[in-house]
């Protein structure tokens, strides 16, 4: 019959614990940064930090769209292939003295939008499982990439097009601004618009969304199209950064994007997830990659570490959502 001893600081320790679990991924990031700073003096240099953010900008941008999809209980496996095709299409219209920059951008983004809309059609109207619909898109769009490029990288760009991936403004790479813009846009959509509420509602309880008069099909179409466009944006940035549109570009990016979302607290069973979480998730992946590179850790071991971190993050997240 042991009575529970009531500790005077019980409430305090409880709320500290609640705080820690609520922001666990932020702490993981801070912890990683601290460890890496300690192990490698080069890590905390501004150049290196900027480099990390630029490196993760692509998977984070893809991750924002993927986050929305996962919140609706879907998945997107086609991001990597869309990156390649959008990059190739934009590249084709980015040769000097041909078209203005806008044409390349609009067509590149348009291809992504189209791919996303096709995914959305199969998921919301034909009612295929998202895994299957986007797997089909992943395979066939990779093929489209090879067809359009005839298997060769497309090079020779205008200065403006090159500027997207390698330009600087006020001392920071342009890519970081684009990342920031995409993050803010996605955050506002998800957090502050009616569409955002609908996305959470569909993932939280689709039946409830239906009986509340929400147009589930329309919102799913939006989400997949938006994600397609985000992948295309990343594809344009990547082709510019590499100075070539390549049919092999963006391989396995979909996995990094999904990992960022999941590490950042997006639940694969739907209804839960945030843009800021995905951004942090991408940063965790980026910091890990960069840190391990700096420490010259063998690439095979790097994969083991990355895999373990993802599983660990999800375990933590489970504790958080209990």
């Amino acid at each position: 019959m042991s009575e529970v001893a009531v500790k005077p600081n019980n409430d305090l320790s409880k709320s500290v614990k609640a705080f820690l679990t609520k922001y666990s991924i932020y702490f993981i990031l801070v912890l990683l940064v601290a460890i890496l700073t300690f192990l490698s003096p080069a890590f905390l240099k501004p150049v290196n930090l900027i480099n990390i953010v630029r490196q993760i900008s692509l998977i984070a941008i893809v991750g924002f769209g993927v986050t929305m999809i996962i919140i609706t209980t879907g998945i997107d496996l086609s991001s990597g292939s869309v990156i390649a095709v959008a990059g190739i299409v934009a590249s084709k219209f980015a040769h000097p003295d041909t078209y203005p920059l806008a044409v390349a951008l609009i067509l590149g983004l348009g291809v992504g939008l189209l791919a996303g809309a096709i995914n959305g059609f199969f998921v919301s109207i034909v009612k295929l499982p998202a895994f299957i619909a986007t797997l089909g898109m992943m395979l066939s769009f990779r093929g489209v990439g090879y067809i359009l490029s005839e298997g060769h990288p497309i090079t020779n760009f205008t200065k403006e097009y090159d500027f997207i991936g390698s330009g600087y403004w006020l001392g920071l790479p342009l890519m970081i601004y684009i990342l920031f813009g995409a993050a803010v846009l996605s955050y506002v959509i998800l957090r502050h618009t009616k569409t955002g509420k609908c996305i959470y509602a569909i993932g939280g309880n689709q039946q409830a969304a239906v009986v509340s008069g929400i147009n589930v099909k329309k919102n799913l179409m939006f989400v997949y199209s938006y994600a397609g466009m985000m992948s295309a944006l990343a594809g344009i940035m990547l082709s510019s950064r590499l100075s070539s549109g390549q049919p092999t570009a963006g391989l396995t990016y979909e996995m990094d994007a999904i990992s960022s979302a999941v590490i950042g607290g997006t639940s694969l069973s739907g209804g839960i997830g945030t843009i800021q979480g995905t951004l942090i998730g991408a940063l965790i992946i980026g910091v890990l990659n960069n840190g391990m590179d700096l420490m010259h850790i063998n690439a095979y071991y790097q994969q083991v570490v990355k895999g373990s971190i993802i599983v660990l993050a999800v375990i933590l997240d489970k504790a958080r959502n209990r």
Binding site: K197, Y200, A201, G204, N205, A208, S212, G271, I272
Partner: peptide, 10 residues
């Protein structure tokens, strides 16, 4: 028909 991770008002 409630959505667990949204607020009461939402």
């Amino acid at each position: 028909t409630s959505i667990p991770h949204m607020t009461v008002a939402e």
